[in-house]
Design a protein around this nucleic acid. Structure first.
Lengths: 191, 191
DNA sequence: CTAATTTCTTACCTTAAGTCAATTTTTATC
DNA sequence: GATAAAAATTGACTTAAGGTAAGAAATTAG
């Protein structure tokens, strides 16, 4: 909870009122490595804030292959946007990649929070803007870059991820096979 | 202008006050096929509403190859989000694919509008939500689908686009070559 | 500390999609 | 409606990345 408060204070004016409200609507949870937090097919509209550790959202295709949508570390939000903003069943799952501390807010509660404390709208808007530009950049990478370019861009941009996240999951984020990623990494170590 | 008003009325309560304000900040423009509305490298933070016709935003890579970011038809918004929400120079351009009528709003003006008429925030939020889920779906398509699957999904989803947009631009949206797209289309006509 | 499991690497082969170049078809222009 | 320009198609060839399978390395669990 303190991590979330810290995060909020860094963005908008904070008050005791807000604190009380937050304590009412936020669920704190410690999760183990490998634990699934949000299951595919659920209809839960939950926003997850990562207080510590690392999470991943992914989609499992018809062949059982997993495709990573997002990684999230401390101070990041992660959720299944398609489920929250449409009325369709979730096609994605969220799992923890390490022992993590997470804070969960129900979407309805969050919407109420926006009404009661309009300054949160600003936070939300900023998050949206960041998310849109991030997704846009990712589309562009997928459209224009080769396997090795995508990988080097990724480890460059998300250095801190490299140690926590298994390579086969990075591959599934970049849209390449683990074998290809391994070959790309070999090249690097030879040059 | 009427098209924008119509659009707004469909989403939030409208008033004469809003109308007056809009007339003050909105620039109406008729553009020709092939006309560039927003140039790469500009720093203009403009939101474009399509009243009629069809627009396209695209990125030109180092080899001069164009990669389509978005198409937009009547009642869609199109802009260069990366330029608007970061302080970097635009790496994308926006062009008109037909004779089009467009309405342009400066980002600063739009932000003021949000302050004066908070109901617009709702409109903005909905737009953001839609955009995020759309981008997310596109990432997923790029990660999981073959050239032909991407194409059939596209023409299925955006039927109305097929007639206006040249195939080589659809190819650049899907991340495949025009030649590959042509082969995919040939298969379809044979089965 | 050892066994079991998971992740990563490597070699060999296959394939989907890219490249290049020529031709046909469609669209725009005078 | 003829001519020019743009877009689409096609064929021959190349290539980047995928598939398979087996073994090595690293992690995790008992």
């Amino acid at each position: 909870m303190n991590e979330l408060i810290e995060y909020i204070k860094n963005h908008i004016p904070f008050s005791d009122e807000i604190k009380i409200k937050l304590e009412e609507i936020v669920t704190e949870k410690n999760v183990e490595k490998g634990e699934i937090i949000l299951h595919e097919n659920s209809q839960k509209k939950e926003h997850i804030f990562v207080a510590s550790g690392c999470l991943r959202s992914f989609y499992t295709d018809a062949d059982g292959k997993e495709h990573t949508l997002q990684f999230a570390i401390k101070n990041w939000w992660i959720s299944d946007y398609m489920t929250i903003y449409t009325d369709k069943k979730s096609i994605a799952s969220i799992e923890s990649l390490s022992h993590s501390k997470i804070l969960i807010i129900e979407n309805e509660q969050l919407q109420k929070l926006f009404k009661d404390f309009p300054q949160f709208e600003i936070l939300q808007r900023k998050n949206f803007e960041r998310r849109i530009t991030t997704l846009q950049k990712r589309v562009l990478s997928l459209l224009t870059l080769s396997a090795s370019e995508k990988y080097f861009k990724f480890i460059n941009e998300y250095e801190s991820f490299e140690k926590v996240i298994p390579n086969y999951q990075i591959a599934s984020y970049l849209g390449i096979t683990p074998e290809s990623l391994s070959r790309v990494r070999k090249e690097r170590s030879q040059n």
